[in-house]
């Protein structure tokens, strides 16, 4: 599970995250909506242990994400906005390499199965990543996280640039992962996708969580209106 408790982070005097508190339970998908600079990526980086909060606590599966990052990272699957992989390796080879970095060793069949499960068809597993579309690379990225058997998934704009079909496949996969007991935090601009996938949605504005909504309680249109309202309103 993910716990962010009263976290503050400033960069050169500019506040990036301000008293942020949120929790993502196992089996839950939480979406973070916010404009550029709202603090989404900073939050994810703190959860990944790359940035130390100025104050407050960031925990992943009960462990401090920064001071115990080497342990927490073992349980985190991370999917960035652009999954750039080694272009001269095939999809399967990339997956294998990243799994080995995580200390995991899979057979060729298992690797293919992971890729297939993440929506990458068999015929492209052996092709070099330099020939992949962004969506295909994204799927390898998800497979990397999935193969790690992560308990926590952090996604930074995962559907950016994906076509609707690929985006839909991603949503299905995330739901499946949550169903298997993973806690998922997804930062995004995509209101509709967030509404469709997430159990809970938080709206971030200038580093603050200004609104938290249950996904099932709002329609996409309502969410958009709500989002725009919070973005436009000055406190």
């Amino acid at each position: 599970m993910i716990e962010v408790d009263n976290v503050v982070k400033t960069f050169k005097g500019v506040s990036a995250v301000e008293n942020l508190t949120l929790q993502v339970e196992t089996g839950e998908i939480m979406g973070l909506l916010g404009s550029n600079g709202a603090g989404k990526s900073t939050t994810i980086n703190m959860l990944l242990g790359f940035i130390e909060p100025d104050s407050g606590v960031v925990k992943v599966n009960g462990l401090n994400a920064f001071s115990q990052s080497s342990q927490t990272r073992k349980t985190i699957g991370y999917i960035p906005e652009n999954v750039n992989l080694y272009p001269y390796l095939t999809g399967a080879e990339n997956l294998n390499y990243f799994c080995r970095l995580a200390g995991l060793k899979y057979s060729k069949d298992e690797l293919n199965r992971f890729l297939l499960m993440c929506g990458l068809q068999n015929d492209v597993h052996g092709k070099k990543v330099s020939n992949y579309s962004k969506g295909m690379r994204q799927k390898v990225g998800i497979a990397i996280a999935y193969a790690k058997k992560a308990k926590v998934y952090l996604l930074d704009e995962p559907a950016s640039g994906l076509d609707p079909l690929a985006s839909n496949e991603l949503s299905e996969l995330l739901k499946k992962l949550a169903g298997e007991g993973a806690a998922i935090l997804m930062a995004s601009h995509d209101i509709f996708r967030v509404r469709e996938v997430c159990d809970r949605i938080g709206i971030l504005r200038q580093g603050r969580l200004v609104k938290e909504i249950q996904g099932k309680d709002v329609s996409a249109n309502e969410l958009e209106k709500l989002y725009l309202k919070f973005m436009n309103n000055q406190e």
């Binding site: 990944l48 960035p80 999954v83 992989l85 970095l101 995580a102």
Partner: peptide, 18 residues
């Protein structure tokens, strides 16, 4: 430069030993 060093950091125990 290709923006996947973070991914490697998440996967690998230590970026320096990697």
């Amino acid at each position: 430069e290709e923006n996947f060093l973070m991914l490697i950091q998440v996967q690998a125990a230590s970026i320096n030993s990697w």
